[in-house]
Design a protein around this nucleic acid. Structure first.
Lengths: 132, 132
DNA sequence: CAAAATGTATTAATGTATTCATACATTATT
DNA sequence: AATAATGTATGAATACATTAATACATTTTG
């Protein structure tokens, strides 16, 4: 699994792992039932303590991205997120508000924000079949 | 100044103050040259240590939102953000990507995200003349 | 059944962030 | 000038987050 961490980036290692796995799933590089590396194996690959990877996997499981089974391994979840419609709306509204305030503060209008969002979405989708 | 903090919300007090002042400015409840409460006064109002408010004001000054002058007071800045076009683009791109990954993860498509964003923007603008 | 691989749980060590106590410097006010 | 108001700076106490060390439980594999 292609993951790169920056040990002194300010953002915690386990969080970097979470973000990148989410990205891999969102961009279809990882799909349902794909197996992810064993905790100890990824830990060795990243030169990091196994507990750090375990924590990342645990959070990803809580987010509905992965499913772990003791003795067996960890795989990409087939189901969607474990959140209710209401929770999803609350989460996204919160993020949307933060983005709007930030943009306003930086002098960027709604139209430009929407434009940027669509641009990034395209860049995102373009990556679906590449890489590996 | 209407600010409410939740001391044990998980998010730091100084950060809550920063967020809310940014919100007040973004929604035009505070405009250029408006004076904000003195550090000690807001601290007393919020039942918080003056240094906590001082830190919030310091960060807001670094973000170009406020301007402090020793002995005089603190006011809303007239100028825009202190960031270059390049930095603004980098900041917003980062946030946009995070939002897209989150939405994808939650099973929400681009169209719905854009719809939500426009909805929130309207709710935002509707508040410009109210409150106080 | 035994061994090896996997995830899980508990506790401790360490680093970082947050808040506070206190003193200082500058400006406005009288 | 004196006083009071303001923001600024420094160091310590405390709390929190992150990572690590170690042991445990479950499942697979032979």
């Amino acid at each position: 699994m292609q993951i790169r961490i920056s040990p002194h980036d300010g953002v915690p290692i386990y969080q970097q792992i979470v973000n990148q796995v989410k990205y891999l799933v969102a961009s279809k590089r990882l799909v349902a039932d794909d197996e992810v590396p064993a905790i100890r194996r990824l830990a060795q690959q990243l030169l990091v303590n196994p507990n750090t990877v375990a924590r990342a996997y645990r959070e990803l499981e809580a987010a509905g991205v992965l499913v772990s089974k003791q003795g067996s391994g960890t795989r990409v979840s087939g189901n969607g997120s474990p959140y209710s419609e209401e929770e999803i709306d609350r989460i996204l509204t919160e993020r949307a508000d933060a983005l709007l305030v930030e943009a306003e503060q930086l002098g960027v209008g709604l139209d430009d924000v929407v434009r940027l969002l669509k641009l990034r979405k395209r860049a995102f989708d373009a990556n679906e079949k590449e890489g590996g």
